[in-house]
Computed example of a mutant assay.
Amino acid sequence: MIINIQAEKIELAKMLLNTNDPEIIQSIKQIFKRESSTDFWDDLTTEQQAEINQGISEIENGDLVDFDSFMAKHR
């Protein structure tokens, strides 16, 4: 099923403009706030964050292995 995103957005805007229900409006605001404040980093464990930071540090220090060399060791 292909969704025309622009048409869906227009339909939602019409529905929002036609409602006088403050609970619906507040619910929609909460959805947008929740979506805009979610950062995947916050969902990672401290161990995962440490591993990512270590990888970044290794890259910055030039401690790299090219893909083919890495794969050759694991075949």
Rank of each mutant, 00 (worst) to 15 (best):
D42Y: 12
S69T: 05
T38I: 15
G55V: 01
Q26N: 13
A50I: 12
K29P: 00
N4K: 11
I24F: 07
I10F: 09
E8A: 13
L44F: 10
F32Y: 14
K14P: 04
H74T: 09
K14G: 01
K29T: 03
I2G: 02
K29A: 08
Q54I: 15
A13E: 13
E51T: 12
N53Y: 05
N61A: 13
G55R: 11
S69A: 05
D68I: 12
D42G: 12
I10Q: 10
T38L: 12
A13N: 06
I24D: 05
I24M: 13
L12Q: 10
A7H: 05
E51N: 14
L17W: 05
E11T: 08
E60M: 07
F32T: 05
Q49M: 11
Q30Y: 08
A72G: 00
I10P: 00
W41K: 08
Q26I: 14
K9G: 01
A50S: 07
Q49N: 07
E23G: 01
A7W: 01
I28N: 02
N4F: 09
K29N: 08
G62E: 09
Q48P: 03
G62A: 09
D66A: 01
L44Y: 08
G62F: 05
E23R: 14
K33G: 04
D43Q: 09
E60S: 09
H74M: 15
E8K: 08
I2D: 01
D43N: 11
E47V: 12
G55L: 07
T38K: 15
K33P: 00
F40I: 15
E8W: 02
N18S: 06
Q6F: 07
S36C: 04
F70R: 00
L17P: 00
A50V: 06
I24C: 01
K9M: 09
R34L: 15
L16D: 01
I28G: 02
K73C: 02
P22E: 08
I28C: 02
A50Y: 13
D43M: 13
T38R: 14
D39K: 04
Q30W: 10
S57E: 14
A50K: 15
L64S: 06
Q26S: 11
G62Q: 07
N61E: 09
D63E: 15
G55S: 10
F40T: 09
D39L: 13
A72L: 00
E11W: 03
L17Q: 06
L44V: 06
D68Y: 10
Q30R: 14
D43V: 11
T19R: 03
K73Q: 10
I3H: 00
E23P: 06
R34Q: 14
E58Y: 10
L64W: 08
S57R: 12
E8N: 07
T45E: 03
Q49G: 07
F40L: 13
L44N: 05
S36T: 07
E60Q: 11
F70G: 00
I28W: 01
K9T: 12
D68W: 08
L16V: 15
L16W: 07
T38H: 12
